[in-house]
């Protein structure tokens, strides 16, 4: 009995001491308030400061520019590439500094290179798209080209090529305009260093491939597809007949109609819509896609054309409505 009496409290103690292991990740209660306080102080001092990479002590612009070319597997002339990365704002800033220090070193900005590059990109992309989308109207191709060469797309490409830290500009982080401009200038620099064909392949691999997985029809908004379709088909001497081929929940808010377009009792396309008119318009859009060879199930765009394709003179609508 005495033995039991001795053991029992001991047992209770053991049970009390051993904690139940909880599977929670224990973050201390002071962590969140501390982080919040730090954030508040940082905000008070004017937000988070990001130091440009090129202000670091071990930054070597020459090595970076060399590596930039090597990463892209391209041969750049060093001076031209440096000029391509020099923005106008940087030149102005440097001139002010030099005036104060009374020295004079001539710096060239990338304006000229960018102009050359832009012209080359626009011409090449236009010709390339006309070749890989032979049935697509010229207006549409121009519209795609505009979208591919706008500031947003080019700055996106430029940023992901890693130009952000190499760019010599007055401000940091650089804005989209400078990023896009630098990309154009890089193309211009490549044009001077490696020739047209090499540059064309560069543009093909980085700009035109942005179309991968995209629907090209979305780049070209058509206001009135029905009249466009009838216009095209009238040239071919064909009349088109829209028919309501299905409806669901006519008297409800969620009504859905399906309209098919027929040529000689053969359906060429169909479209859906919340009203019969919308469905007809969508059917016309589908038919136009068929005419232009850009249906949803079209073959992927060829991104492997070698050299610079020759501009196609006789680019007209080609009808294949069957």
């Amino acid at each position: 009995m005495a033995l039991t009496r001795g053991i029992v409290p001991f047992c209770f103690k053991v049970i009390k001491v051993v904690p139940i292991t909880l599977q929670t990740h224990n973050i201390h209660r002071w962590v969140a308030p501390t982080l919040m306080e730090l954030k508040r102080r940082e905000k008070k001092l004017g937000g988070k400061k990001t130091n440009p990479r090129n202000t670091f002590a071990e930054w070597n612009l020459e090595a970076e520019l060399y590596a930039f070319g090597k990463r892209l597997n391209e041969e750049f002339n060093y001076d031209t590439l440096l000029q391509a990365f020099t923005d106008r704002s940087y030149v102005v800033q440097e001139e002010m500094k030099q005036k104060e220090m009374a020295i004079d070193i001539n710096l060239k900005d990338n304006k000229e290179l960018a102009e050359q590059g832009e012209q080359f990109i626009k011409e090449y992309v236009q010709v390339y798209l006309e070749t890989v989308l032979p049935k697509f109207p010229v207006d549409g191709v121009t519209s795609i080209t505009k979208n591919l060469t706008n500031e947003e797309t080019l700055s996106h490409i430029s940023l992901h090529l890693g130009t952000k830290d190499i760019i010599l500009a007055a401000e940091y982080p650089v804005d989209n305009y400078i990023l896009a401009n630098t990309f154009k200038a890089i193309v211009g620099a490549l044009l001077q260093s490696s020739g047209k064909e090499r540059t064309a392949h560069f543009v093909r691999d980085f700009v035109i491939t942005q179309l991968q997985g995209q629907d090209v029809n979305e780049y070209w908004p058509i206001d009135d597809p029905w009249s466009m379709l009838t216009e095209i088909l009238r040239k071919d001497g064909v009349t088109i007949e829209p028919r309501l081929i299905g409806d669901v929940g006519k008297n409800t808010l969620l009504a859905c109609y399906r309209v098919g377009l027929y040529i000689n009792k053969k359906m060429i396309s169909s479209g859906f819509g919340e009203t019969a008119a919308t469905a007809k318009e969508m059917a016309a859009r589908e038919a136009l896609k068929k005419v232009f060879g850009t249906e949803d199930h079209m073959k992927p765009i060829n991104f492997q054309l070698e050299g610079i394709p020759k501009p196609n003179e006789n680019n007209i609508y080609q009808i294949s409505a069957s």
Partner: peptide
């Protein structure tokens, strides 16, 4: 896009 919108509309249409 308009095409994607009506595709969605047709997919989720309620049949009676």
């Amino acid at each position: 896009s308009a095409a994607k919108r009506v595709q969605q509309w047709a997919t989720f249409a309620r049949t009676w």
